[in-house]
Amino acid sequence: MIQVVKLVKHYQEGEVTTPVIEGLDLTIGDGEFVAIVGPSGSGKSTLLNLIGCLDKPDSGEITIDGTIVSSLKNKEALSFRAEHLGFIFQDFNLIESFTVYENVEFPLSVILGEKNTRERVKEVLEAIGMLDQIDKYPDQLSGGQKQRVAVARALVVNPRIILADEPTANLDSVSAKKVIDLMKQMQEKFNTTFVFSTHDTKIMTEARRIVTLQDGRIMDDRSNG
């Protein structure tokens, strides 16, 4: 479970302070499939970065499964991310010099130092339908395929939560739909909590819960179907 309480985050640029998150409260339960929506600058990415322990709030608290992640030190945050969180990015951000297999295996072998990774990697790649592409490099894949690999990379460590920042923004509508469908399938299969940001209205309707942000505050929080 993710609990966000009275979260505040400002960005300082020179003498100008820009408020991004203004006293935000939010609770996301286990296994939810949540879309964070809102216009550019509404604080979607910042909220995901704060939940993902990539950034620290100015005030307020974020708790994930009982751990107050907003007060973790850098090293603690690093290992918390490695063990409990998965990330999917707008630009896919695969390691270009690694094959599909190596990209997916990377978090297991390098970050968690696991030895027998082959079965787990194959299981995840099979689940996302990329088992026949394991020896390809990212530059040999389409955008949709790259994002599927990114989903597999996020899933392979079996995280409780996957945070996806605009995962479909660089995809055509067909690929975007496929990626969102895949995320939904994975959420059902592994009971992983998915929190993703989007400003694509078609994509947001795929979510089971939609949280709308504006000027760093929640304007709307509703279930979707």
Binding site: G52, L54, L78, S79, R81, A82, E83, L85, G86, F87, F89, D91, N93, L94, I95, E96, F106, P107, V110, I111, R153, A154
Partner: peptide, 16 residues
């Protein structure tokens, strides 16, 4: 930079 950011985000130790 993005590759480095990704590695760091997913928990890769800075020594790596």
């Amino acid at each position: 930079i993005k590759e480095i950011g990704t590695m760091s985000a997913i928990g890769t130790p800075s020594s790596f």
